[in-house]
Amino acid sequence: MAAIKFVGIIGVVLLWYFLPGFAEALYPSRILQLALYGILTVISWKILTSKKFVAVDPSNKAVLITGCDSGFGNQLSHKLDALGYTVFAGCLQPDREGAQKLKMSCSDRLMIIPLDVTDDWQVRGAVKTVKENLKDKVLWAVVNNAGVAIFTEIEWCSVTQFQRIMDVNVLGVVRVTKLFLPFIREAEGRIINVASLAGRFTLPAFGAYSMSKKACIAFSDALRQEMAKFNVRVITIEPGLYKTPISETDNLINMNRKSWSETPTEVKDVYGEEYFDAFLKNITEQMKRARPNVNEVIERMLDAVTNESPKSRYVPYWLSKIRLIILAHLPSSVTDKLLNVYMPNIKPSNE
């Protein structure tokens, strides 16, 4: 393994030494050159950061996960329970079907706890519950998975909706992390924050969501540096769009219709009903792009919890990494044109 990695490193060094001239000769187009750089960067990163997997011993370790009613949190709870971890599954609605099915399908090591990450008292109650039930175990990881989304244009996204998404996706992460951090610091464990690729670049109608995920990434970056002195790891999981409750079209359409109905008439007159209908149709089409293989994300979350040497950042799906690299290196004038395909192909009524 060491020999292969050494050869790989030498190959990467030589590749990057000759790459500029090679790329220019082979692909005169700047975009194609960037695509080549993106692909080779991912390959290089894989070679340079590859480590042998060494599993954490789960026998004396507990994990707290938020947002376990459904989606990533629910599935991660199942997987960690099966591996032998003690799981505290935080659920917004602990008496509803999602939480109850989770409890019934797992071992008695898994405990459902009520956890609304926007409620200070409930988060403090969760701390008390975890402390009383840890027994001889340590709190090894906190997975801040709970999140909400709204995909709508800014002019008909109310300030209340901005506040809601920031309270869950940002302040919820801060609340939970700060209160559980003493346990994690004592165990030299890890904080795992589920962010998004939307925190790295922003699509039209993703303004509120991207703002929250950018803030989550900034919080994680600062905390990672501050916690290094305590041997505490801080990790982000940054998936693209996957088929989870967040991407359910009916919910998104209903939220947009509610927002539109509450938008001042003078604003609606600028856009027009035809534009709004086209927007809804476009959102429906975009949600069809959501990747069905949510296991790509769950496997990265599992690695973040169970690997003795986890990465500080996980981006599921290799093509997403390449797109991210390309978009990061293009001027905004170009990215604006590329991302304009996500806008309705119709002009507002006043144009």
Rank of each mutant, 00 (worst) to 15 (best):
Pro58Lys: 03
Asp116Arg: 01
Cys91Met: 03
Lys103Arg: 15
Arg185Thr: 10
Pro310Val: 08
Leu338Phe: 00
Thr177Val: 00
Phe22Gly: 06
Val168Gly: 02
Thr49Pro: 05
Val267Ser: 11
Thr335Glu: 03
Thr86Cys: 15
Leu302Asn: 07
Ile112Ala: 09
Met166Cys: 07
Gly125Tyr: 01
Glu351Val: 14
Gly147Met: 04
Asp81Glu: 07
Gly272Pro: 08
Gly147Asp: 00
Leu36Asn: 03
Leu92Thr: 02
Phe201Trp: 12
Met104Gly: 14
Thr265His: 15
Met287Cys: 07
Asn193Gln: 03
Gly90Arg: 00
Leu19Cys: 01
Leu26Pro: 05
Leu252Glu: 07
Glu132Gln: 11
Val168Asp: 07
Val194Ala: 00
Glu274His: 13
Leu115Asp: 01
Arg291Ile: 03
Ala290Lys: 03
Gln122Phe: 06
Gln93His: 15
Met1Glu: 12
Ala99His: 02
Thr236Leu: 06
Leu179Glu: 13
Leu179Ile: 04
Ser105Ile: 12
Lys178Phe: 12
Lys288Phe: 01
Ser107Met: 02
Met211Thr: 05
Gly240Thr: 02
Met111Gln: 13
Phe151Val: 01
Val123Lys: 02
Val168Ala: 04
Gly73Trp: 01
Val194Arg: 01
Val174Lys: 07
Ser220His: 04
Val7Gln: 13
Lys5Leu: 05
Ile184Trp: 05
Leu14Cys: 14
Trp121Leu: 15
Ser107Trp: 10
Gly71Glu: 03
Ile47Trp: 05
Asp303Tyr: 03
Asn307Val: 08
Ser261Asp: 14
Lys128Gly: 05
Ala215Asn: 08
Arg96Tyr: 10
Trp318Phe: 13
Asp119Leu: 11
Lys79Asp: 13
Asn74Phe: 09
Leu339Gly: 03
Ile235Phe: 04
Val117Ser: 08
Pro348Arg: 08
Gly21Leu: 01
Arg30Ile: 11
Pro264Lys: 14
Leu110Glu: 08
Ser247Asp: 06
Leu203Ser: 02
Arg313Pro: 15
Ala141Pro: 14
Ile150Asn: 02
Trp45Phe: 14
Tyr317Leu: 08
Arg190Met: 08
Gln33Thr: 00
Tyr17Leu: 11
Pro182Arg: 03
Thr86Pro: 14
Cys157His: 04
Ala187Val: 01
Gln163Val: 03
Glu155Phe: 15
Phe151Ile: 00
Phe162Val: 00
Ala82Phe: 11
Val54His: 14
Ser29Cys: 10
Ile31Pro: 02
Val127Trp: 04
Val56Phe: 06
Pro28Ser: 06
Thr263Tyr: 08
Val341Ser: 10
Gln163Gly: 11
Ser59Pro: 01
Tyr342Ala: 14
Val173His: 08
Ile39Ala: 08
Pro94Ile: 15
Leu115Trp: 02
Ile235Pro: 09
Asn60Met: 10
Val138Glu: 10
Ala3Gln: 15
Gly90Cys: 00
Pro28Phe: 10
Met1Val: 13
Leu134His: 00
Gly207Ala: 11
Cys91Tyr: 04
Glu273Asp: 14
Lys137Met: 04
Asn133Asp: 06
Pro264Phe: 13
Ala2Thr: 13
Glu351Met: 14
Arg30Phe: 12
Phe279Asp: 00
Ser212Gly: 05
Ser158Thr: 09
Ala55Asp: 07
Tyr317Lys: 12
Asn169Val: 11
Leu280Glu: 06
Leu197Glu: 10
Pro204Cys: 07
Val334Thr: 13
Gly8Ala: 06
His78Lys: 15
Ile31Glu: 12
Ile346Tyr: 11
Ser210Ile: 02
Thr236Ser: 11
Ile235Cys: 01
Gly21Cys: 00
Ile192Trp: 00
